[in-house]
């Protein structure tokens, strides 16, 4: 297999990975939350994506306030 053959395979695998990531990301956002779990809404602003340290930490404080 020539070097360019390998490069084409590698690039196509990476693109396939990118597409699966985006499709699964969109699908995950679109599937409705299962019936019984609407209430466990983590405070979206704090727990969205990345700022999760406060998400757990302050979430407990809010509960027992």
């Amino acid at each position: 297999m020539s070097q360019t053959g390998y490069i084409i395979i590698a690039v196509s695998i990476l693109l396939a990975l990118l597409v699966t990531f985006i499709v699964s990301f969109v699908l995950y956002r679109r599937t409705p939350v299962p019936k019984g779990c609407e209430d466990i809404k983590a405070s979206e602003e704090k727990c969205s994506g990345c700022s999760h340290v406060e998400c757990h930490f302050y979430q407990d404080k809010e509960e027992n306030k």
Binding site: L18, I22, V26
Partner: peptide
């Protein structure tokens, strides 16, 4: 709007 995070990660 919908695919902001994947684009930013890339």
């Amino acid at each position: 709007e919908e695919i902001r995070t994947p684009a930013y990660i890339v």
